[in-house]
Design a protein around this nucleic acid. Structure first.
Lengths: 327, 327
DNA sequence: CTGAAAGCGCTTACAG
DNA sequence: CTGAAAGCGCTTACAG
């Protein structure tokens, strides 16, 4: 029923090989190329990509595995990845793991079956730790989170420095009892905590941290619990945009004025963080560049498979707003 | 290099046909099935999906074509679609058109080359109007926007009623000079405008509308222009979540108190709309259900290709907040 | 530059 | 239930 390459060949009076070459970059005379193009138009022929992929052993497909596309950070990164991919003539398969190691394994298997060209992956700590170089049949670029040094290319934020910048700013603004709420599943959250702890120590301050699942609901619940206690912090640094939203809700629920009763700072410069009154102090991540750089690392790796493993570390940009006003 | 079905067959001492059947739902004796499964484990075999798709003529793939995944409405819908798809053993190819008719055409062609099982599509008005039933080799389900009646299955919001509900609420709150800012590219924006106009007429009020590209920046610019005029409206209804954000920015830029100097209402119950002070009155869309219903329509269509075209109309839920407080 | 032929890795009638 | 064989729709050495 569907028109195939044989129909086009017949219509153009050439062999299927010539049709194939005319549509690809093969050497074909101008005359025949035009005949083929006319035949393609006349028949409405569309090549079958499954057949092409099977025969050419090149799927032109990259897998993108993230925790949840509804996390604005991943939304933005994925858009950058897709733009770069389609521009390079590749398509992308998107998978949401919900920070679940089993689903990560499932999707990694799927990527094998798809014979993908490469994968861009934001793994949980569990999975990242278990991933050895050469385990998979395709190159992997880690984003947002990294694994064991030297195993895979990665592009991450300088999380330690970003956290420290937040602490330094809060200290400069007159805060001392600064708490940290961090996600429990990613290396990124760990690094942000480490940066927080180091900076607190540098200032001679006592660190106080809590951990929870990296989503708004969990962060709200944990914040409410924490902030209802007697010795609650006077400022809070929160691990990501979703969790920061939870912390804001918690402050509202407990009627804590920001920054009067509680200063707030976090990560991800989502549009809404500017709209609040006061606006929220955050670390802006170069989301588009993270996606674009990940694609670059992947393409470089495909070109030079034996090149040493690279780790691209990007700096966050502190955006200071009213939520961390002077104490 | 990669292990194929022949290697598994050899390892299990059976034919490739038996391996194939053991991995699918074919009839195989328990004994052989176990041998095959052991061989699969031993060899680490992963079937090549390109080959399977080519041979079986079933790609198990659905295309999802939206304006921009960064629009939270589409983010949420796409997550619902993907969950349903993976649960049904299908994968999804995501495409962003940026409301560009050329890119829509491009991606529709790509879908043909992928030989997708079906497509879920939020088209611009231009493309929707041009799409005739039977043009494509696969069923299409329109979401958020619909085309000519009877051409394709669709799942949309009751936009007319939703807009009217917003007008009614504003009138009840004492507003009369109510303006409407609507997107210029979708049938949805048109319906929302029509609903607004009808409701205004019903109340004996003079409608006043403006149109702009459906994004935050364009809405902000247009709002600033409009609200700086002498006869500016005392309340504004805005077409979608992105544009509503632009209107909020405009009010801030012009130092218009909400709702004192300008009441604000719109669409899409994004988390941030509740966080503002006052919160924003919005129509909440059943995003997850839209995605799930679209998949249902698609599956039903695949089962019964000749069934009459269906249009699922879902109701929005008004969420009344302070931004439309009494005048 | 062009064509005939082989083959990518599967699944599926067809026999038995 | 099982196997030998054909074939899905392309691309690509191999000759010419």
């Amino acid at each position: 029923m569907s028109v195939g390459i044989r129909d086009v060949a017949r219509a153009a009076g050439v062999s299927t090989a010539t049709v194939s070459r005319a549509l690809g970059r093969g050497p074909v005379s101008d005359a025949l190329r035009e005949q083929v193009e006319a035949a393609v138009r006349a028949t409405g022929y569309r090549p079958n990509l499954s057949a092409r992929r099977l025969r050419s052993q090149a799927t032109q497909t990259i897998g993108l595995i993230v925790a949840d596309i509804r996390n604005p950070f991943f939304t933005a990164v994925s858009r950058a990845v897709e733009d770069a991919a389609y521009q390079a003539g590749m398509r992308v398969i998107l998978c949401n793991t919900d920070e679940d190691a089993e689903r990560e394994a499932l999707y990694l298997r799927l990527m094998q079956e798809e014979r993908v060209t490469g994968v861009i992956f934001a793994p949980t700590r569990t999975t990242a730790q278990a991933m050895r170089a050469g385990d998979l049949d395709f190159p992997v670029v880690l984003i947002d989170r990294s694994g064991p040094p030297g195993a895979h290319d990665s592009v991450v934020l300088d999380n330690t420095a970003a956290s420290a910048a937040l602490v330094d700013h809060l200290v400069a603004q007159g805060y001392a009892r600064i708490g940290g709420l961090f996600g429990s599943t990613s290396s990124t959250a760990q690094e942000r905590r480490a940066g927080y702890e180091a900076a607190m120590a540098r200032h001679g301050l006592e660190p106080a941290t809590r951990a929870c699942a990296p989503n708004a609901a969990a962060a709200e619940a944990e914040s409410v619990r924490w902030l209802a206690e007697g010795d609650r912090p006077e400022a809070l640094i929160v691990s990501n945009g979703l969790m920061l939203m939870g912390a804001v809700r918690a402050a509202r629920a407990l009627a804590l004025a920001v920054p009067g009763a509680l200063a707030l700072a976090g990560f991800d410069n989502e549009p809404w963080t500017e709209l609040l009154d006061p606006g929220l102090t955050v670390i802006e991540q170069p989301v588009a560049e993270i996606g674009a750089q990940a694609m670059n690392l992947l393409f470089d790796r495909l070109k030079s498979p034996d090149q040493p493993v690279r780790k691209v570390v990007l700096s966050g940009r502190p955006v200071l707003r009213g939520s961390t006003g002077r104490r």
